[in-house]
Amino acid sequence: MSCPICSGDTDPKFRPFCSKRCADVDLSKWLSGSYALPSEDEDEALEALEEMERLVDQDRPH
């Protein structure tokens, strides 16, 4: 089995990754939404847009 990030040999300590670095890269992709699947559901799309707008409004100074 090879590391899904860099294709190197896996280390049993970090399996399925080869190192902590590759495990952290994978975690970062999950947290940033890089692994998200697109949705065809219009309600989910509207909810996501509303949530993004709410988050942007929170960051704006009053």
Rank of each mutant, 00 (worst) to 15 (best):
M1K: 12
M1G: 14
S2G: 13
S2Q: 11
S2W: 12
C3K: 02
C3P: 00
I5A: 02
I5D: 02
I5C: 02
C6Q: 00
S7Y: 11
S7R: 14
G8Y: 07
D9V: 13
T10H: 03
T10Q: 04
D11K: 04
D11V: 05
D11Y: 03
P12V: 12
R15Q: 11
P16Y: 00
F17G: 01
C18A: 04
C18M: 02
C18Y: 03
S19R: 02
R21Q: 07
R21A: 15
C22W: 00
A23W: 08
D24I: 04
D24E: 05
V25G: 00
D26T: 04
L27F: 08
L27Y: 11
K29R: 09
K29N: 05
W30C: 08
W30A: 07
L31Y: 04
L31M: 04
L31W: 04
G33I: 00
Y35T: 03
Y35V: 01
Y35M: 03
A36L: 06
L37K: 12
L37H: 14
L37M: 06
P38V: 03
D41V: 03
D43C: 13
D43V: 14
E44Q: 06
E44T: 09
A45I: 15
L46I: 14
E47C: 14
E47W: 06
L49R: 08
L49P: 14
L49Y: 08
E50S: 09
M52R: 07
E53W: 06
E53L: 09
R54Q: 11
R54A: 05
L55P: 10
V56C: 06
V56W: 04
D57R: 15
D57N: 15
D57C: 13
Q58P: 11
D59L: 11
D59A: 12
P61K: 12
P61A: 05
P61M: 13
P61L: 09
P61R: 06
